[in-house]
């Protein structure tokens, strides 16, 4: 029996997404009156200037979208980002969700480079570790290309 403590899996942003490894979802919100969508969640006063609603519902956003644009980080980003040491270039994408008509920023999954994607490509949400401390692995949403052979 090992006495080694099991590492805890935590969200880097509690409540912003589900930690379901198989089918993670971003948690956005929707105005109960004008039906506009928000991510990150918005819960006070509707930002649609024609809507005076103060009532919102938390909803799971679409888990797939299309790449609006993409880039990479050729140099380690400054804190508060926690960069890998040694540093490895990673890619980022802004992804458009068709139903919600929202563009949401995220990293591309580890190992996916700018050469692997094009604007308009379909991607889906996944969860990976953003940074670690002594006890925990902090999780973040990322986007990964949808392969043709996946269901």
């Amino acid at each position: 029996m090992s006495t080694k403590k099991v590492r805890e899996i935590k969200s880097a942003r509690e409540g912003w997404f589900t930690l379901d490894a198989d089918n993670p979802r971003l948690l956005g919100s929707q105005c109960d009156v004008c039906k506009t969508y928000y991510f990150p969640q918005h819960a006070q006063y509707c930002r649609n200037p024609d809507c005076e609603s103060e009532e919102f519902s938390v909803i799971e956003l679409s888990s797939r979208g299309k790449i609006w644009s993409y880039t990479n980080a050729g140099y380690p980003p400054p804190p508060p980002f926690v960069a890998d040491d040694p540093y490895e270039v990673f890619a980022q994408a802004a992804v458009e969700l068709e139903k919600e008509k929202l563009v949401i920023l995220g990293q591309l999954a580890k190992g996916v480079t700018v050469d692997d994607v094009k604007i308009g490509d379909e991607v889906e949400l996944c969860i990976e570790t953003l940074f670690q401390d002594d006890e925990s692995d902090y999780q973040i949403w990322k986007w990964k290309p949808v392969n043709g052979d996946q269901a």
């Binding site: 993409y70 980022q92 604007i119 953003l130």
Partner: peptide, 24 residues
């Protein structure tokens, strides 16, 4: 703060995404 913390998204990252759209 969050865009750096969560995505490492520097100012050039945003400029680059607009530049990429021009190109494609």
């Amino acid at each position: 703060w969050l865009r750096f913390r969560l995505h490492g998204a520097t100012n050039p990252a945003y400029f680059a995404m607009h530049a990429r759209r021009r190109i494609e």
